[in-house]
Amino acid sequence: MNEQKTIPAAPARQVHGLRPVEKAARLTGWALLLAGLGHVLRAVWEIRLWTAGEPASGPPDRGEGAHRPLNGLEDSYHVVTSLLGAATLVCAVFFIAWLWRVRDNSVALSRESPKYTGLWVYLGWVLPVANLWIPRGLIADAYRKSVPGRKLPAVVTVWWVLWLVGLLSGTGLFFRDGADEMIERAYTEIGPVLFSEAAMAGAAVTGFLMVRAVTAAQLERIASLTPAEPPAEAPTESPAEPSAAE
């Protein structure tokens, strides 16, 4: 997994295998902000649930598969949660597509094998324990191979810490509680719920900044290895024809 093989360095201005990354980065950034907005919106609904207080009939989930009918506020919370789930799925698709491109470009620029094999681009997010460091490692490796000698931006670490906090505190991408369980938590323990939502929203914003920083550094390196186009020649004026009077 961590073995690296060095490939002979490609001469400057002859970099092959580069993939367009700017559009993918832009889509990923907007998808991250959309997911962050979803967490903010759900936090608003959780505050509304906490303010309204738990109904006398108790929590929606009665256990053993029994559920009471939802009131209007609880039903709308389910809708908000479903929208957040859809936004998160879109964000995950765009993010992985961007990560593939950045990783491939780093290999083309450095002519070195990546630190992690391609399988980890997917498994790194879902495999327990490994998902605590591999996704950040993939991005850090791609950055360092793209711009060797340059310090990794602090926003990469800030994004990853916020992501882990949100993930481990119970409202992240892989949380186990369903919407009914989250409603009960909003009624009874609003503080931890809002803390987790804030962490995920913060991870989305810093993720947006991280994607921009990594992409900008890679594009700068690519531009430095790409021949500049010659300046357009100014049109030459044709000599004026002599007039009939002359």
Rank of each mutant, 00 (worst) to 15 (best):
R48W: 14
S224T: 13
D177F: 03
E184F: 05
A108I: 07
G166M: 08
S238T: 15
T81L: 11
I134K: 08
P55K: 04
E3N: 09
Y116V: 06
A201D: 10
A217E: 05
E233F: 07
N2V: 04
L219K: 00
A25G: 03
Q4Y: 00
M210G: 02
R26G: 08
A56H: 07
A92S: 15
W50H: 15
S169I: 03
P227M: 10
L34E: 09
A223F: 02
L84C: 08
H16L: 13
L84V: 05
W100C: 10
E229F: 14
S146H: 03
P230E: 12
T226A: 01
P8E: 15
T6W: 04
T215L: 01
D75C: 09
I47H: 06
T206W: 00
V79K: 15
R176M: 08
V211R: 02
G166T: 01
V161M: 11
F208C: 11
V121M: 13
W120S: 04
V147C: 04
E197L: 12
R144N: 13
V205N: 08
L18W: 10
E46F: 05
P11D: 07
A234D: 15
V90L: 12
M210D: 06
T226E: 07
G36L: 08
P59G: 06
V21K: 02
S110I: 06
P230C: 09
V155K: 12
Q4H: 05
I96D: 02
M200K: 04
V129Q: 01
A130R: 09
A154D: 15
R68C: 05
L209C: 08
M1C: 11
R42Q: 11
R111T: 02
V155A: 11
D177G: 05
W125H: 10
A92E: 09
A179W: 01
A201S: 15
W159Q: 03
A31G: 15
L99Y: 03
G72Q: 09
V158L: 10
P20I: 06
H78R: 13
V93P: 01
A142M: 12
V102T: 05
L18V: 08
T236M: 13
S76A: 09
E246L: 04
T171P: 04
D104L: 11
S76I: 07
H39G: 00
G17N: 13
A203C: 12
T236A: 15
Y116I: 11
A43S: 14
L84G: 12
A108E: 04
V156Q: 07
S113L: 10
P239H: 14
V80Q: 05
A201W: 06
E64L: 10
F195Q: 07
D104R: 13
G178P: 09
A24Q: 05
P60K: 06
L219H: 01
V214P: 07
V165H: 10
S196L: 10
G58W: 08
G38V: 01
E184K: 03
L168M: 07
A140P: 01
S243M: 15
P55W: 08
G118Q: 05
R176L: 08
E184L: 02
I183P: 00
V102H: 00
A97D: 13
R212G: 14
V156E: 02
P227W: 04
L127S: 08
T171H: 07
N105E: 00
G172R: 03
A186C: 02
W45F: 14
Y187L: 01
E22A: 14
